[in-house]
């Protein structure tokens, strides 16, 4: 196809001017990560999704180790261990409707946690530009591609504002179980309204910056690091094939 060739020449001319291509970032190609998230969700949310859980856990551990996010790895392992204990161990040692209810709840939560842990890899390793470039390569409609990239950029902004508002509330002694139970709506209004106002103010600056950098332009931007299926993606693909085969074979036993 011609667009790719055009991309190539434009990239080559950019490199000729002396713009250095940044190194290929760590982590899966965003497109591979998206496919993986959806695939994990589909198998885990099945009725017999429980037997896919070990495979998903191995995948999560592999991705997080590749990324080198050791603290996240620990928190993921602890969360999964606690939920798995509630789901599969507690009902065995304590046979009671309460433990059975806790078990069903924990097993259900465990599904969400495993899928979210796969998704955490995408969120942690993907920059907004990388995300938009990957989605453009998929020919996703432009507004959607740009929007998903922008969202990645806004998340830390809004999270910061939320934290700041919560801190301010804590300083004034407005955070507490009593306040929330007595006036839930008022407590929430005090949190949400300033948070939205502050975030919107921050968004004005960000959108001005984004438009300056060509967000509204109708030319197709060329990524300096083109999204490609790399060696890491291949290794993860092989791991996934192995895990799927193992899970399917184990069912036959």
């Amino acid at each position: 196809m011609t667009p790719i060739d055009v991309d190539g020449t434009r990239r080559a001319s950019a490199l000729a001017v002396g713009v250095e291509a940044p190194p290929r970032p760590r982590g899966l190609d965003p497109r591979a990560a998206i496919v993986l998230i959806v695939a994990t969700s589909v198998v885990i949310m099945q009725v017999d999704g429980v037997r896919w859980m070990p495979a998903a856990l191995v995948l999560v551990i592999a991705l997080t180790m590749w990324e080198g996010a050791w603290r996240r790895l620990v928190s993921e392992l602890v969360t999964v261990a606690v939920l798995a204990a509630f789901a599969f161990w507690l009902p065995v040692v304590w046979q009671h409707p309460v433990s059975a209810t806790l078990g069903v709840g924990a097993a259900y939560m465990l599904r969400f946690v495993l899928v979210a842990a796969v998704a955490a890899h995408l969120v942690a390793t993907t920059t907004p530009t990388r995300m938009s470039a990957a989605l453009r390569a998929w020919h996703v409609p432009r507004p959607v591609a740009v929007m998903l990239g922008v969202m990645l950029r806004f998340f830390p902004v809004v999270a910061n504002e939320a934290r700041a508002v919560l801190d301010a509330m804590r300083l004034r002694g407005l955070v507490g179980a009593r306040g929330v139970t007595r006036h839930p709506l008022r407590a929430v209004e005090r949190f949400v309204v300033p948070m939205i106002a502050a975030s919107l103010r921050g968004s004005e600056d960000l959108s001005a910056a984004a438009i300056l950098r060509g967000l509204g332009s109708h030319r197709v931007p060329v990524p300096l690091v083109p999204p490609r299926f790399g060696a890491g993606d291949l290794l993860v693909l092989l791991l996934v094939v192995a895990l799927v085969t193992a899970t399917l074979l184990l069912k036959g036993l």
């Binding site: 929007m147 998903l148 806004f154 998340f155 939320a162 948070m195 959108s207 509204g216």
Partner: peptide, 17 residues
């Protein structure tokens, strides 16, 4: 572009809320 940024920021705010 402003529409797209509006959608993005409100989606993020909605989810954080």
């Amino acid at each position: 572009p402003r529409d797209i940024i509006n959608v993005a920021i409100f989606a993020v705010i909605y989810f954080i809320v």
